[in-house]
Design a binder for these strands. Structure first.
Length: 292
DNA sequence: CGTATTTGACCTGCGC
DNA sequence: GCGCAGGTCAAATACG
């Protein structure tokens, strides 16, 4: 089991080690750029200006975006000086009751228990981001495979954006939400508790299902993992497991750090995830009883 | 008075 | 090279 702090610490160390191993400065910059560009986007119905995610943010800018009458707000994490994590908040042009929050970067500090709020949601995102973030030797995985193969309880909840300039996962919490007036307080330490019942149930169903699929496929890679690769999988498993209490931000950290792994490894993982998703469609019933 | 927000200016990347 | 759009900076302003 990978602990919250342990996972976070290992990821930071892994990224640093990898960067230090580069002799070519350009290659290091390219990796930093890759880390920065990995994004997780969350769509949720909310009348407030921000969804509660357990972190503290300071607004540093606002712009009108083309094609959307609503302004886009820019925030940076203020839980630690120099924390590189940013987020963008914007209302959906088609449905202004929908708030789109996009996270970018990795936290450089320990996270409070309050940041656990959205761990369930983004753990799925981390897995999918990893699977589609890099060209595979067998060809790029078709995002529609992921979308069409999503599980009954998660249908339309998680999509992989192929057209976005950055590898981006969009989690849509608006599909069945009909009554949402409780998750509107900024910095609410109990935001997961305050999610409407139907959303909470979807989240708790989705996460164990994915966790089981990953952990029940011991030969998913088709080749022997090296130490670092095993750690990546351990980290992702830990982030998927709701009982570890891994945080929302840690999950994003895991996803962004994992895509810096070598292409061959990522290629194998893409194939494995594709295979798992393909097989999973025949075993809905057994998986559906994993709700915590 | 210290801190957070607002907002116009500035920077950067990209397409033409 | 130029213009556009997205993103960031920082001075001014608001707020507790």
């Amino acid at each position: 089991m990978v602990t919250d702090e342990g996972l976070s610490g290992w990821l930071s160390n892994k990224v640093s080690t990898r960067l230090n191993s580069f002799r070519d400065v350009d290659q290091a910059s390219e990796t930093m750029s890759m880390i920065k560009k990995a994004r997780v986007s969350v769509r949720a119905r909310s009348e407030s200006s921000m969804i509660a995610d357990g972190c503290q943010w300071r607004k540093y800018g606002q712009k009108m975006a083309k094609g959307n009458p609503c302004p886009r707000a820019y925030y940076r994490c203020t839980m630690s000086t120099g924390c590189p994590v940013r987020k963008q908040v914007q209302r959906c042009a088609e449905d202004r009751s929908v708030l789109i929050t996009t996270y970018e970067g990795q936290h450089n500090h320990p996270l409070p228990p309050t940041a656990k709020a959205m761990a369930s949601t983004t753990s799925a995102a981390a897995s999918m981001l990893l699977s589609g973030s890099m060209p595979s030797a067998d060809g790029l995985i078709n995002p529609t495979i992921l979308e069409s193969a999503t599980l009954p309880c998660s249908q339309n909840m998680a999509t992989l954006s192929a057209s976005a300039p950055f590898p981006t996962i969009t989690l849509d919490l608006t599909q069945t939400a009909t009554n949402n007036n409780n998750n509107n307080n900024n910095y609410n330490p109990n935001s997961l508790r305050d999610l409407p019942n139907n959303q909470s149930q979807q989240l708790s169903l989705l996460t164990p299902l994915l966790a089981q699929k990953f952990m029940s496929a011991p030969n998913m890679f088709g080749h022997v993992l090296n130490g670092d690769q095993s750690k990546i999988i351990s980290g992702l498993q830990g982030s998927i497991d709701t009982t570890t209490g891994s945080s929302f931000a840690d999950t994003i950290n895991a996803a962004t750090a994992a895509i810096t792994a070598d292409p061959n490894f990522t290629s194998a993982l893409v194939a494995a995830i594709s295979s798992i998703i393909g097989n999973s469609t025949h075993h809905h019933q057994s998986s559906n009883n994993n709700d915590a």
